[in-house]
Design a protein around this nucleic acid. Structure first.
Lengths: 204, 204
DNA sequence: CACAAACTACACCGCGCAGTGTAGTTTCAG
DNA sequence: CTGAAACTACACTGCGCGGTGTAGTTTGTG
């Protein structure tokens, strides 16, 4: 028996190496500027092997996006609890969100996906659908708290987007679009607490 | 005498046509995927003429960025007034901001610039500097209001980023990265009012 | 109207890329 | 140990790109 992280079969190792190399290259240079020759070289395989695994650059790219997406949605859902303070629950929710946003795997996905989506309308459509699901965590919580009478948010989707906007403005967009460094633990705490307090000052 | 929008000299008309075509092409396909042949064709000139005006694709691209940037900073500054309600002033500030975010010229710049900056670190550095200035309008207002004792924002930069985050989460990032349609006047109003009220509930 | 400046068509170069075909070598399960 | 499956090196095609050079035409000013 072998650990799945180190596959025994040569073909699996090669495939993994190709995907890893492709992630690095696409992330560093984007879709257009990345060549299959470079990917093959970095993966330590022949170009032919790359094409034996993936029929085209487009296919390989799609697989990368799929893998990164799956890697990024490992987080578990936190559900509303009527017996706990709103502030504590929201802070936990945001902490989870910030953990995701600061995760390098997720950031890679976002950069590559956004870069790809900016130009290709159809690719952008794919993203819209997927992103929608991911936002749900916070939204359902807000909806539950509102239904419980503890938040006066008439539109949970709107309210949760407001809250997320405040966080992403510090912890996501600058890192994705301007290559800024991720937030430190201290900064994360500050951003989350301030956002939650402002949110509750208005909606509680 | 001739209107500057329709230059008389052939060479000026050609140059303008090239720039216009380049904006369209770069916006539609990004830097890498746009070819000089296509730009020339769309501009209705020969490729040689393009190269007579701009020594390289890179130069042309830089000029596009410069032009779009200048077109986008037409807005005048609104300064803090001690004799007016905070809410009214903030709403005006945000309305101005939303007007800019919804402006097609600005959106074009942002899309092209972000697409360019995502991969090239040096290009991203340029953007950081420029964007910084642009944010200043709201920040100086917050600082003034805080100095006047009407806002308890200890960190004006942080507070103004929070406010902007809420707005951009609806009116900027979805449009830039996911190709979503701009906000209607009604939606803009809602976003601005809700953001300002939340902001004041916390900081006033 | 002459003439310089600008534009055009077009051929051309070198390059790197996506993708293929082939002939030979390595891997590894039965 | 055998043999199929997988990998490798490498040569090659076709294409589009950025950029240049040239010879001839158009434009518009003095």
């Amino acid at each position: 028996m072998q650990r799945p992280s180190e596959p025994q079969r040569l073909t699996d190792r090669k495939r993994a190496a190709i995907i890893e190399a492709a992630i690095d290259e696409f992330r560093a240079a984007g879709y257009e500027a990345t060549s299959m020759d470079r990917i093959a070289a970095r993966a330590g395989t022949s170009k032919r092997t790359v094409y034996n695994h993936f029929p085209s650059k487009e296919t390989l790219f799609a697989e990368i996006l799929r893998q990164l997406w799956e890697a990024s949605i490992a987080g578990e859902e936190l559900s509303y609890r009527a017996d706990r303070p709103l502030r504590d629950q929201l802070l936990e929710l945001l902490a989870q969100k910030l953990r995701l946003l600061n995760d390098e795997a997720f950031a890679s996905l976002a950069r590559v996906a956004i870069a790809a989506g900016i130009h290709s309308t159809e690719r952008a459509r794919d993203m819209v659908a997927r992103m929608g699901e991911r936002e749900e965590g916070l939204t359902v919580w807000v909806r539950a708290a509102a239904a419980d009478g503890r938040l006066k948010a008439k539109d949970p989707v709107f309210a949760s987007h407001q809250l997320q906007g405040m966080v992403k403005g510090f912890a996501f967009w600058p890192q994705i679009t301007l290559g800024q460094p991720p937030l430190s633990a201290k900064e994360q705490k500050r951003v989350a607490e301030s956002a939650v307090d402002m949110f509750l000052a208005y909606y509680a």
